[in-house]
Deep mutational scan, measured.
Amino acid sequence: YKELDVHLRRMESGFGFRILGGDEPGQPILIGAVIAMGSADRDGRLHPGDELVYVDGIPVAGKTHRYVIDLMHHAARNGQVNLTVRRK
């Protein structure tokens, strides 16, 4: 696995990616679609299928989808987010 730290600034449309997973206990949280011309797309480092490991330094492995969405909403209010993702 390769770990990447990604800092994104929120645009009008948000951070520019969707979150998948976390529906079953222990299921990984994954990056879903990366939205064209969004913040994540312009940054270029997030890829669909990347596993989300940390959101603003908070571990999200094994957490629920709702928990991660709530963290992302909090980050959106701050206008930026630091993510750590893991890729095979």
Results as ranks from 00 to 15, higher is better:
residue 20 L to A: 14
residue 69 I to M: 15
residue 19 I to Y: 01
residue 2 K to Y: 09
residue 34 V to C: 07
residue 51 E to A: 05
residue 71 L to N: 03
residue 48 P to M: 10
residue 49 G to C: 03
residue 84 T to M: 08
residue 59 P to V: 09
residue 44 G to I: 03
residue 18 R to K: 14
residue 86 R to C: 06
residue 41 D to Y: 09
residue 71 L to H: 05
residue 83 L to C: 04
residue 40 A to N: 05
residue 12 E to T: 10
residue 6 V to H: 01
residue 38 G to M: 04
residue 68 V to I: 10
residue 6 V to Q: 01
residue 58 I to C: 12
residue 52 L to N: 02
residue 26 G to A: 06
residue 71 L to M: 10
residue 37 M to H: 15
residue 81 V to K: 02
residue 82 N to R: 10
residue 42 R to G: 05
residue 73 H to V: 09
residue 72 M to I: 15
residue 84 T to D: 03
residue 62 G to P: 01
residue 41 D to M: 06
residue 52 L to V: 10
residue 53 V to L: 13
residue 12 E to I: 05
residue 33 A to I: 03
residue 40 A to D: 04
residue 10 R to F: 08
residue 6 V to R: 00
residue 41 D to R: 05
residue 81 V to Q: 00
residue 66 R to G: 12
residue 70 D to K: 13
residue 11 M to N: 15
residue 46 L to T: 00
residue 21 G to R: 06
residue 84 T to G: 08
residue 41 D to Q: 11
residue 19 I to W: 03
residue 18 R to A: 06
residue 6 V to P: 03
residue 9 R to I: 13
residue 59 P to Y: 15
residue 21 G to K: 08
residue 59 P to H: 14
residue 39 S to G: 05
residue 43 D to N: 07
residue 12 E to F: 06
residue 53 V to K: 09
residue 32 G to W: 04
residue 6 V to S: 00
residue 85 V to T: 01
residue 82 N to V: 09
residue 24 E to I: 12
residue 79 G to I: 01
residue 79 G to K: 08
residue 30 L to E: 10
residue 14 G to D: 10
residue 16 G to K: 02
residue 64 T to G: 13
residue 65 H to E: 08
residue 28 P to E: 06
residue 69 I to R: 13
residue 58 I to R: 11
residue 62 G to R: 08
residue 26 G to Q: 07
residue 19 I to T: 07
residue 43 D to V: 04
residue 37 M to F: 10
residue 35 I to V: 13
residue 19 I to D: 01
residue 78 N to S: 09
residue 63 K to D: 02
residue 65 H to S: 13
residue 45 R to C: 06
residue 49 G to W: 04
residue 44 G to W: 03
residue 36 A to S: 13
residue 43 D to F: 03
residue 30 L to V: 14
residue 23 D to S: 10
residue 20 L to K: 15
residue 14 G to I: 03
residue 72 M to Q: 01
residue 35 I to F: 10
residue 35 I to K: 13
residue 63 K to R: 11
residue 38 G to S: 09
residue 13 S to T: 12
residue 77 R to E: 15
residue 32 G to I: 02
residue 3 E to C: 11
residue 55 V to N: 02
residue 45 R to V: 07
residue 58 I to W: 10
residue 4 L to H: 07
residue 79 G to W: 07
residue 14 G to Y: 01
residue 34 V to Q: 04
residue 62 G to Q: 07
residue 57 G to C: 06
residue 52 L to S: 01
residue 83 L to S: 01
residue 79 G to R: 06
residue 76 A to T: 12
residue 13 S to K: 14
residue 4 L to A: 03
residue 67 Y to S: 10
residue 45 R to Y: 04
residue 61 A to G: 11
residue 51 E to P: 00
residue 48 P to F: 06
residue 25 P to D: 08
residue 16 G to Y: 02
residue 76 A to M: 12
residue 8 L to I: 07
residue 15 F to L: 01
residue 23 D to F: 10
residue 71 L to K: 08
residue 39 S to M: 05
residue 47 H to C: 13
residue 26 G to N: 11
residue 15 F to D: 01
residue 84 T to H: 10
residue 81 V to D: 01
residue 68 V to E: 00
residue 7 H to W: 10
residue 15 F to S: 00
residue 42 R to W: 05
residue 25 P to A: 10
residue 25 P to N: 06
residue 28 P to K: 12
residue 61 A to T: 12
residue 65 H to F: 12
residue 4 L to K: 04
residue 56 D to Q: 05
residue 80 Q to K: 12
residue 54 Y to P: 01
residue 28 P to I: 03
residue 11 M to W: 09
residue 16 G to N: 02
residue 56 D to F: 01
residue 15 F to M: 02
residue 47 H to G: 05
residue 71 L to S: 02
residue 21 G to V: 08
residue 8 L to W: 02
residue 4 L to E: 08
residue 49 G to S: 04
residue 80 Q to I: 09
residue 38 G to W: 01
residue 78 N to Q: 11
residue 70 D to V: 06
residue 17 F to N: 01
residue 71 L to W: 02
residue 31 I to E: 03
residue 12 E to A: 12
residue 88 K to V: 15
residue 30 L to R: 13
residue 17 F to G: 00
residue 27 Q to S: 13
residue 33 A to T: 13
residue 31 I to W: 02
residue 36 A to I: 04
residue 80 Q to F: 14
residue 40 A to W: 04
residue 65 H to N: 15
residue 69 I to W: 09
residue 27 Q to F: 07
residue 24 E to Q: 13
residue 85 V to A: 03
residue 34 V to E: 05
residue 76 A to D: 15
residue 78 N to L: 11
residue 20 L to N: 14
residue 65 H to L: 11
residue 9 R to T: 14
residue 6 V to F: 05
residue 65 H to R: 15
residue 77 R to M: 13
residue 7 H to M: 13
residue 75 A to Q: 04
residue 86 R to Y: 08
residue 80 Q to Y: 15
residue 40 A to K: 04
residue 53 V to N: 04
residue 3 E to G: 04
residue 41 D to T: 04
residue 40 A to R: 03
residue 66 R to Y: 08
residue 14 G to E: 05
residue 34 V to T: 07
residue 14 G to R: 01
residue 8 L to K: 02
residue 83 L to Y: 02
residue 60 V to H: 01
residue 11 M to G: 15
residue 70 D to Y: 08
residue 37 M to K: 15
residue 20 L to T: 15
residue 50 D to C: 00
residue 9 R to C: 09
residue 87 R to S: 11
residue 44 G to F: 04
residue 72 M to Y: 03
residue 64 T to S: 12
residue 18 R to Y: 07
residue 25 P to C: 07
residue 61 A to L: 15
residue 59 P to L: 14
residue 38 G to Q: 06
residue 31 I to G: 02
residue 24 E to G: 09
residue 87 R to A: 10
residue 84 T to W: 03
residue 64 T to E: 09
residue 56 D to T: 01
residue 79 G to T: 04
residue 17 F to I: 15
residue 20 L to S: 15
residue 76 A to K: 14
residue 57 G to T: 07
residue 22 G to W: 04
residue 22 G to C: 07
residue 40 A to H: 04
residue 17 F to T: 00
residue 62 G to E: 08
residue 70 D to I: 06
residue 54 Y to K: 15
residue 58 I to D: 07
residue 22 G to Y: 05
residue 44 G to C: 04
residue 19 I to K: 03
residue 55 V to L: 11
residue 23 D to I: 10
residue 66 R to V: 08
residue 29 I to W: 08
residue 22 G to Q: 08
residue 25 P to R: 07
residue 42 R to N: 08
residue 64 T to D: 10
residue 53 V to R: 14
residue 42 R to C: 09
residue 29 I to Q: 04
residue 13 S to I: 03
residue 26 G to W: 06
residue 67 Y to G: 09
residue 59 P to G: 11
residue 25 P to I: 09
residue 16 G to A: 00
residue 60 V to S: 00
residue 48 P to N: 07
residue 46 L to E: 01
residue 29 I to M: 09
residue 27 Q to V: 10
residue 5 D to H: 15
residue 16 G to S: 01
residue 6 V to G: 00
residue 37 M to V: 05
residue 74 H to T: 15
residue 55 V to T: 01
residue 74 H to R: 14
residue 67 Y to L: 09
residue 15 F to I: 00
residue 48 P to L: 09
residue 71 L to A: 06
residue 60 V to W: 01
residue 84 T to K: 15
residue 63 K to I: 03
residue 55 V to Q: 02
residue 53 V to P: 01
residue 31 I to Q: 01
residue 48 P to K: 12
residue 65 H to P: 06
residue 34 V to D: 06
residue 47 H to A: 14
residue 55 V to A: 01
residue 82 N to H: 14
residue 43 D to M: 04
residue 30 L to W: 11
residue 63 K to L: 08
residue 47 H to F: 11
residue 65 H to G: 09
residue 38 G to K: 04
residue 55 V to M: 09
residue 52 L to F: 03
residue 72 M to V: 10
residue 42 R to K: 13
residue 24 E to T: 13
residue 64 T to Q: 09
residue 45 R to A: 07
residue 11 M to S: 14
residue 37 M to G: 15
residue 18 R to S: 15
residue 70 D to L: 07
residue 87 R to P: 03
residue 11 M to R: 13
residue 6 V to E: 04
residue 76 A to N: 14
residue 86 R to S: 08
residue 10 R to L: 07
residue 51 E to Y: 03
residue 78 N to T: 10
residue 32 G to V: 05
residue 15 F to T: 00
residue 78 N to Y: 08
residue 75 A to N: 02
residue 63 K to E: 09
residue 63 K to W: 05
residue 59 P to S: 14
residue 53 V to A: 08
residue 44 G to R: 06
residue 23 D to E: 14
residue 7 H to S: 14
